[in-house]
């Protein structure tokens, strides 16, 4: 795992297009509403601490003084009962799955290190996530039948990244065009860009 994010599109910011035809009113409203994280209403204090630690491990942002927040939006989604269209028969509904999964992660940390997940250093926390992903559980009872890998990948990580890359910082760092309506794109060819797109990335291998 790399230590530092390499940032091929340093300096590019989709928000530079805020007042251009790439943004329309409804998109501006959505992004504006996302700027201020909603208050916590779903998770308990304990669950919240584990969730914050999990988000920090899933999407570490060492280069940012003001990192993108993800946990408040997960909390808001669960509070609103926002679904995905699917409930696997062997999984509880999303809110219950999150509560059980976070408690189980905490239990894994206690079983291995005698400390909660939120109190682990990055390396130890990462090691637990990798172990959970490969089905290597230190406290299987804590999972109470919750499929650990599926919780981690499909419930937790998928939700976290959907929030991260919906934020302008997430879009900008990968050189994505971001909002595009009414103005779309003209130059569709290989290595071709419109003046309102991210400039060509800086790639170590090119």
């Amino acid at each position: 795992m790399t230590e530092r994010f390499s940032a091929p599109y340093r300096g590019y910011d989709v928000l530079d297009k805020w007042d251009t035809p790439s943004f329309n009113d409804q998109t501006r409203r959505v992004l504006r509403g996302r700027m201020d994280p909603p208050p916590r209403r779903f998770f308990s204090d304990t669950e919240w601490r584990v969730l914050l630690a999990l988000c920090a491990r899933a999407m570490p942002q060492p280069e940012r003084t003001d990192p993108v927040a993800m946990a408040p939006f997960i909390d808001a989604d669960l509070h609103a009962g926002r679904g995905t269209g699917t409930r696997r028969a062997d999984m509880p509904e999303p809110g219950a799955a999150w509560r059980r999964g976070l408690a189980a992660l905490d239990a894994e940390a206690v079983a291995r290190h005698g400390r909660g997940f939120a109190d682990l250093d990055a390396a130890a926390a990462n090691a637990i996530l990798r172990a959970v992903d490969s089905g290597d559980l230190a406290d299987p009872a804590a999972w109470d039948g919750l499929p650990a890998q599926r919780f981690l990948r499909e419930t937790a990580l998928k939700h976290i990244v959907s929030i991260y890359y919906s934020q302008p910082q997430g879009m900008s760092e990968i050189g994505y065009g971001g909002p595009a309506s009414p103005r779309g794109y003209v130059r569709l060819g290989t290595d071709r860009i419109d003046p309102w797109e991210a400039p060509h990335g800086q790639w170590p291998d090119r």
Binding site: Y9, R10, G11, Y12, D13, L15, W18, D19, L31, R32, M35, D66, P168, Q169, S172, R192, I193, D194, P195, P199, H200, G201, Q202
Partner: peptide, 16 residues
């Protein structure tokens, strides 16, 4: 525009 902006840490790369 919202105020949460990335502080550019390097000059912008080349435009077409």
């Amino acid at each position: 525009a919202p105020s949460h902006r990335e502080v550019p840490t390097a000059p912008r790369t080349r435009r077409p």
